[in-house]
Nucleic acid binder design. Structure first.
Lengths: 110, 110
DNA sequence: ACGAACGGTAAGCATAGACTTACGGATGTC
DNA sequence: GACATCCGTAAGTCTATGCTTACCGTTCGT
């Protein structure tokens, strides 16, 4: 459940994992359904799901013999939080640079 | 300059690259400055910057012999756009599931 | 109770890619 | 003009990890 410092963003570096993430965003799916839509084997999907689950980006719930996975709202919120943080930092930096140096004297921090 | 379909998110999978990204969010920096703050060599930083630049997440401008890198607002906007898309998809899916199945009959798509 | 469907895990491999050292080109300084 | 600084690129190594096959446990149907 612990969300990462980077909002779990590191987990989405892999294309297959991103694809799984995007599919789950549109509709909760079982492992088999995901494997059908992807060019990898079912165990591969299972392994990715494990990583995503450990990272808090998805949750699963048993339904008969099937395990239905769906996005974890808190996980996505973590991603947004991280990105918003970076975004705010960038805005602040830009603003500071714009008002403190209208004619580019020095950009150093003593 | 082309932004990716995933908003360039795949580029931030690597921890070092994320670190560079976060540093640049707080303050534009030269290659050497980044290398000083990171546990990798200068060429490594240079290579990461190339990837980030090709992905449209950062921009550079020459300043004497130094190359100052800073975040590209459009790139960050691309990230936000991708994440918002996933977020909206997830919301829609959740809403649809909630109103179409108050008592869980079938979750299948014929 | 038996068989089938579904999925998690182990072991192993193979490729991507992150890092280093070495080099060369451009710019600024004396 | 010579030297120093800063940076990008090439070549090569090595590790992380994504994928596959094989196996086993669990749950449902008949």
């Amino acid at each position: 459940m612990e969300t990462y410092g980077d909002g779990g963003l590191g987990l989405l570096g892999d294309p297959t994992r991103r694809a799984i993430f995007e599919i789950l965003a549109r509709r909760p799916s079982s492992v088999g359904e995901l494997a059908e839509r992807l060019p990898v084997s079912r165990p591969a999907v299972s392994q990715h799901l494990r990583v995503l689950k450990d990272g808090g980006l998805v949750v699963s719930h048993a339904e008969g013999t099937r395990r239905v996975y769906r996005l974890n709202p808190e996980g996505v919120a973590g991603l947004r939080a991280w990105l918003d943080g970076v975004w705010n930092d960038a805005l602040t930096a830009f603003q500071k640079a714009a008002e403190a140096a209208p004619d580019d004297p020095e950009e150093e921090v003593p």
